[in-house]
Structure formats: C-alpha cells, structure tokens
Amino acid sequence: MKYLLILFVVALALAPLTHFLPSKRQRQIARMREYAAVHGLFVEFRDLPAVARSSAPAERKQQVIYYGKRLPPSRGTPRERRAWLAQDGEWQGLQRSWQAPAISAALPAAVLAAGVDEGSCGIYWREDGSEADVQQIVDALMAWEQALCG
C-alpha cells in the first residue's frame, strides 16, 4: 500500500509537466518547417500582401506563415515587388494587370498568396496542409527561383 501511495504522489507531482509536451499537430508543424529548412527555404511570420497595404491598424494583424526561397541580388534594375492572392481557386494579382506566376498551378489549395520581391520569392499559408503539401511548395519555389534567376 505504501508503494501505491508513493507512486500516486510521484504521478501527481509529474502530471503538470505533461502540459509542456508537444501535441501531435505541433510535432507535424515542426516536421513541415524542418523539411522546408533542409530543402533551402526559410520560414517566418508575415502580413498577407493585401492586408499589408491597408492603412487600418486593426486589419494589419492578419499574420500568416511565409515559406520563402532567398534570391540572389538582381543585376541592374531591382525586381519589382509583386503579390498574387488565391481566392476560390483563382489567382489574382494585387494589380489586375499582373498575370499569375506559372507555379500557381503546382501549389496546394491551402496556399493563400504568393509573392516576390528583391530578396525572396515565396508563399503565404496557415500550415493547414501536410508534409506532402510542403514538398509541393518546395518543388514549386525551386522552379520559380530558376525562372526568376535564369
């Protein structure tokens, strides 16, 4: 009986520590980010491109995850900053005249937007997908980098 009581007290003392164990979803997100990093991407929080242009401070709080591929500096004229939003399966540029990038067809449905600037090209999403989606994103961004840099 003493041993059972000791075991109960030890379990009671260790129970709060289980709060710090990562959940299944947190482990999946860590694996997705690690896969992206190993394959040459960087991951950071950014505002969605359309929201970043808004002047209302309440609307600027919509940060999502950006998976990006760093680009070498352009020679001569710098790259123009461009962004496209995925809405109902259609890609639309922030400027209506911008055509969607060729990689947009290869991206998973969970992607919210894509963008390019002088330093990187990448996609915006909420990591709602799986590791297979990250593999699609890596392949698409590698192809986009090749198209931009030649």
Rank of each mutant, 00 (worst) to 15 (best):
A58S: 13
L107N: 03
L17R: 02
A102K: 05
Q146S: 09
L7A: 15
G68Y: 11
G76F: 12
Y124Q: 07
Y3W: 11
A86M: 09
A36E: 06
L107R: 01
S23P: 04
V134Q: 00
V43A: 03
R82G: 01
R96D: 13
F20L: 12
L4G: 07
R27I: 12
S97K: 12
D133P: 05
A143H: 12
L5A: 11
S54V: 08
P108E: 06
A109F: 03
Q28A: 13
Y35I: 07
Y3C: 03
H39E: 10
S130K: 06
L14E: 02
P72S: 15
P57M: 09
V111A: 02
V111C: 04
R75I: 14
E44I: 04
S23I: 02
I29W: 03
L5K: 09
R126P: 00
L21Q: 10
D117R: 14
S23K: 05
K24M: 08
L141E: 01
T18Y: 13
A106M: 05
F45Q: 09
S54T: 06
Q146Y: 02
A50Y: 01
S104N: 05
R46I: 01
R82C: 01
W98R: 01
A30G: 06
M1K: 03
T77G: 08
H19Q: 12
Y3F: 06
R60D: 00
K69C: 14
R60V: 01
S23E: 04
W125C: 11
R81G: 00
S104R: 05
R53W: 08
G68A: 15
Q63A: 09
G89C: 08
S23A: 08
R27V: 13
Q136V: 11
C121L: 11
F45S: 11
F20Q: 03
A86I: 02
A105K: 13
Q136P: 06
W91V: 10
L85T: 11
E90F: 09
D117W: 12
G115A: 15
Y124D: 07
Q87R: 12
R60M: 04
